[in-house]
Amino acid sequence: MIDLWSPSAGMSVGMIIITSYLLGLVHGITPDEHTWPITFSYAVGSYSAKKGLIVGLIFSLSFTVQRSLMSEISYFALSKVFSLPYFNYIIYIIVGTAMALGGMYVFKFKNAFHVHFSKIDRSHHAAALKGEEYPDVQPPTPKMAIVHGFIAGFGFGAFALIIYTVLAPSMPNAYVGWVPGFFFGIGTATVQAIAGLLFGTITTHLKISREVASKISSLTAGRTLLWGGIVFVVAGIFGLTFPSIANFQITTPLHVHNLHSLGIEFVLVIVVVLVIGTGTLVREVRKAAKISVPSEDLHE
């Protein structure tokens, strides 16, 4: 019988592969700070169901490559440094920095912060509030998702602990030490690709003009990456400075990884995806919906 909560060593290669893949599915479905914020950002910014699926797949395949590499390293019991208590907080800072830089790219750097140093143009601000004007933005690129996917793969949690300390060392030889990490990544990619498709689809069905919807998609991606990245960096610094507080956990009755113990990881997902990302999308769509546009320019 497959045990996803606490699999034991000594399983057959077939069972290890199945267990790894199923763990990847759970990892992709449950709120994980190393996948959902980034998939959401790039998929929404793509303004396309097809591109959303592709970017979700690209990100998670890059994640898969990293997990395969770490799985191979773990076969030789060389991954102990990655399980150190403070390591995950260092990854938060690195991932957050990469996200913030991605957000600045979306805003074309000079427009990342909208600040006036001269006389305030009230009409300009009034138009912006109505959704008639948006910052000069551009959609994030798949290449950025590849970099973020590889960096995010270094995050260490319950899933990584199982892959690196139980499944990878149980492989028969070094030639297949990468297999558990690979199938774990493929399981994650299965879900994240579907999630990317759904996020991309949402932006194409907004009841506003296509031009405005496209700008709002990029704006949402930019803010999620920029401010979400800052939140990650702050969380990493806080974790390194006050580890006893940052390691808080709320236990739930759900016997599922990422849902049984809720801590800073869960908070990051909620803040970045729901508060910053979804909050921006909903707010900007409401603003834009107040603008009257020709009926033929609306989505069906």
Rank of each mutant, 00 (worst) to 15 (best):
S20E: 01
G10Q: 05
T204A: 13
P243S: 12
P7F: 08
A9Y: 00
V65E: 04
F159Y: 12
F156W: 13
T64L: 06
A112M: 14
R223Y: 13
G153P: 02
M144T: 09
H299R: 09
H124R: 14
G157K: 09
T201N: 13
P135K: 14
A221K: 05
M11V: 01
G279E: 02
L25D: 01
G14T: 05
K130Y: 02
F113V: 14
A9I: 07
Y92C: 15
A289Q: 14
V269W: 11
S12W: 03
F107V: 05
D3G: 05
S79R: 03
V137N: 10
F242M: 05
M104P: 00
L23Y: 01
P31Y: 14
T280L: 01
D136W: 12
L254S: 00
L298N: 07
M15A: 12
I216M: 12
E211F: 10
G181C: 05
N258L: 13
L268G: 03
Y105T: 10
F248R: 09
I58F: 02
G279V: 02
H205T: 13
I186H: 02
V176L: 14
L78F: 13
H114W: 10
P294M: 15
M99Y: 07
T252K: 04
G239E: 04
G236T: 07
R223C: 05
E33C: 08
T278R: 07
G96A: 10
Y164M: 15
V106K: 06
S123W: 02
S83N: 11
S46H: 07
A112S: 15
G153V: 08
L274I: 15
I146Y: 02
P31W: 15
T224N: 09
I91R: 05
T252D: 04
